[in-house]
């Protein structure tokens, strides 16, 4: 599952480059240039992606490890 998360992250990384609307001035919703709309949608997609990552790839073991007693 964690590998899927990393594939998802690099997918987002490529999508962020946005080759397709680079020189397109079409307006979305009547006021948002499509290149900007793409990246605004991207920001929302990032949050959804991390929501999924938190659910399926949360490092459960880290909490237990941090709570283990130490020499200090």
């Amino acid at each position: 599952m964690r590998n899927l998360i990393w594939i998802g992250f690099w997918g987002l990384f490529v999508l962020h480059q946005d080759f397709w609307y680079w020189n397109d001035a079409t307006l979305c919703f009547g006021f948002l240039p499509i290149g900007l709309a793409w990246h605004v949608g991207f920001s929302l997609a990032c949050s959804l992606f991390w929501m999924a990552a938190m659910k399926f790839a949360w490092p459960e073991e880290i909490e237990a490890w941090a709570a283990e007693s130490t020499e200090r």
Binding site: F13, H16, G35, L36, S43, C46
Partner: peptide
């Protein structure tokens, strides 16, 4: 508008 991608959505990711 490219400034949003340059600084904001890059930072978000």
């Amino acid at each position: 508008i490219g400034v949003y991608g340059l600084m904001a959505s890059w930072a978000g990711l």
